[in-house]
Nucleic acid binder design. Structure first.
Length: 573
RNA sequence: CGGGGCAUGGCGCAGUCUGGUAGCGCAUCUGCUUUGGGAGCAGAGGGUCGGCGGUUCGAAUCCGUCUGCCCCGACCA
């Protein structure tokens, strides 16, 4: 492609709306443009990146035996009503209606559609297992779209759905997908981790996520190098503290703490670390009353764990300040376990505290020297909190560390959740109807593009991993208008490289050299050749690698083989 | 959804408090000079100041209302 024939606008200044580096660079390099909140257009150079990612995904899905299909983006409400998700999916679902006032949604995912296909197409156990996949535009009306392509409302996703007679077959395909995903992210040159996950909205049992590691990631991942444990923090169990709870050594006292509501304020006021304070959160209970959850002051509630408790309403709902005052007579900020009169469920670590600080159930007062059993009833004990760095690994091989990650892939064993709701059955060997088991496997294709930039950039711009670079090679021609010899040499070089099967972006624009260098760095194609009058005199072109900055002068006659060698190094990396 | 902020040429911003000529940088176009890391000079085009309503002799500026966008948000109970 010739840049002289491509309207390509780059920005020197960072657009105000872009917060994370991938969003900034995608806009500055002219790869995408925002149409409206969370909705983007892919410009010519950007689309080439997306297509290359798609291609790697497609090749590996095909290799793993999956079958590509393309399902409708617009889906009728009836199918979603069959599984009950029309009501449960909530505002994330973009609902639309046609001229007859029939209801549809723009698909945020395709379990209902594929299950409908499966129940129509699949009749016999002999046809199983089957794994269908598609690469499709999805729409989820996120509460808060942000970070450009990382949390967009409209996005490109690869989703696959497998159908099985039994758990063993499901397990086999699930493992095959895990291997395919590992190949995909490895081929794309991404630094990633596979982690155990909560299966969340979609439901089902076993589930793993694939995270590209980046500080800007929205997810926290707990991992342990000692035992290879890795899981999303929300799905990581915290272990009970070792040993028995210390015995009480101080007496219970009530102290005035005017205006000190938060753990930080109370801790600072009394000179006590947050880890010695107890925080009580009142949440809606499953029986309509309130339930108190007790955490150590320095720990955070894990909503997923709390929701799983039978006493707690799901979804988790924090009691409003008004409701708290109404029920307990205590303003928020001063609640404690002593004489509270509500069921208390304490996190392991909170239940292990002795001589701790808590609210006195009286405005502007706290208590010190509080002890379970002596002052407050022994609480029910559960795992309620997020793990923190330094906690023991559930794998038993050391302590946990926390890293941030961008979720780019997720695989689930769905079981019969959808197939049962939609009566997707086949006949078994005995001629009996059997509900199929399902797996589902997603990859955020457009999110990968953003994640790759988060992981691969410097102060000058993007540094594409070679497999997703919009071109293999960028060829800069300096001052083509000043020299017919330079132009002719560039044309010969361009033609020759293309004949060798190399995808070349030729900068033949009438622009100053400085502009070309700066924009080449911004765009981030891994390999660059510069042809100018200076080098041509000696029959040389200059090579530079984007990532390392390594340079070499190459004789015109040797360019083909030299470049081929450089490209070969990429695929080996 | 709650809270906060912003809306002025394609992009980044000033001007709004204290009403009266709409301005700067980047980008775009023309010419000249330049030409190996986002050039210099001279000139030019481009704005219903987000929409609607009001106050006023006069509104980007004051008032009301609507819309859009951005940021933060169970953090403590």
């Amino acid at each position: 492609m010739r840049l002289s024939q491509l309207p390509w606008t780059t920005l020197k200044e960072t657009p105000a709306e872009a917060e994370v580096v991938s969003h900034q660079l995608l806009l500055r390099a002219g790869l995408v443009r925002r149409l409206t909140s969370g909705i983007f257009s892919w410009m010519p150079l950007g689309l080439r990146v997306l297509r290359r990612v798609e291609q790697v995904v497609r090749e590996e899905m095909d290799r793993a035996g999956a079958l590509e299909v393309l399902m409708p983006a617009v889906q009728p409400a009836e199918l979603w009503q069959e599984t009950g998700r029309w009501d449960r999916y909530g505002d994330l679902l973009l609902r639309i209606h046609d001229r007859q006032q029939r209801e549809y949604c723009f698909g945020p995912t395709h379990e209902e559609i594929i299950t409908d296909i499966a129940r129509r197409e699949l009749r016999s156990y002999r046809q199983l297992p089957v794994n269908y996949y598609q690469i499709q535009t999805k729409f989820r009306d996120e509460i808060r779209p942000r970070f450009g392509l990382m949390r967009a409302r409209e996005f490109v996703m690869k989703d696959a759905y497998s159908f099985h007679m039994d758990q063993a077959s499901l397990e086999e395909t699930y493992q095959a997908m895990a291997r395919a995903y590992t190949r995909i992210f490895t081929r794309l040159g991404l630094h990633f981790r596979t982690v155990e996950a909560d299966s969340g909205e979609i439901g089902g049992s076993r589930s793993q996520e694939f995270h590209v590691l980046a500080d800007s990631g929205e997810d926290a991942i707990a991992y342990c190098d000692g035992d290879q444990y890795a899981a999303n923090v929300e799905a990581t169990p915290s272990l009970p503290p070792a040993g028995p709870r210390p015995a009480p050594t101080t007496t219970l006292e009530t102290v005035a703490t005017p205006g000190a509501r938060s753990i930080e304020e109370v801790g600072a006021f009394l000179g006590v670390p947050a880890s010695r304070c107890l925080k009580l959160l009142l949440v809606e209970g499953s029986d309509g009353g309130l339930v108190a959850l007790a955490l150590r002051g320095d720990h955070q509630l894990n909503a997923i764990k709390a929701e799983r408790l039978p006493q707690v309403a799901s979804p988790l709902a924090l009691a409003s300040a008004e409701r708290v005052l109404e029920t307990t007579g205590v303003p928020t900020g001063f609640l404690g376990p002593v004489g509270l009169g509500l069921p208390v469920i304490a996190d392991h670590a909170a239940a292990h505290l002795a001589d701790f600080v808590a609210g006195a159930n009286r405005g502007d007062h706290h208590q010190t020297g509080v002890n379970w059993g002596r002052d407050a009833a022994e609480p029910m004990v559960a795992d309620l909190r997020n793990v923190v760095a330094g906690d023991p690994s559930p794998g038993g091989g050391g302590t946990l560390d926390i890293a941030r990650g961008i979720e780019v892939g997720h695989i689930f064993q769905l079981g019969d959740k959808y197939s049962r709701a939609m009566n997707a059955v086949v006949l078994d060997q005995d001629g009996k109807e059997r509900v199929m088991l399902m797996g589902c496997y997603g990859i955020g294709v457009s999110r990968i593009v953003a994640a790759a930039i988060e992981q691969n950039h410097d102060e000058n711009g993007i540094i594409w991993p070679a497999p997703m670079s919009p071109f293999d090679l960028m060829l800069l021609v300096l001052n083509p208008k000043n020299s017919d010899a330079v132009t002719a040499a560039a044309e010969r070089l361009y033609a020759g490289l293309r004949e060798a099967g190399i995808e070349v972006l030729l900068d033949d624009r009438d622009a100053r050299p400085g502009v070309k260098f700066a924009e080449a760095d911004l765009l981030g194609i891994p390999h660059r050749l510069v042809l100018g009058e200076r080098g041509l005199k000696d029959g040389m072109v200059e090579y530079r690698q984007r990532r390392s900055g390594a340079e070499a002068k190459v004789a015109l006659a040797d360019v083909d083989s030299f470049i081929r060698q450089q490209l070969a190094n990429d695929t080996g990396a």
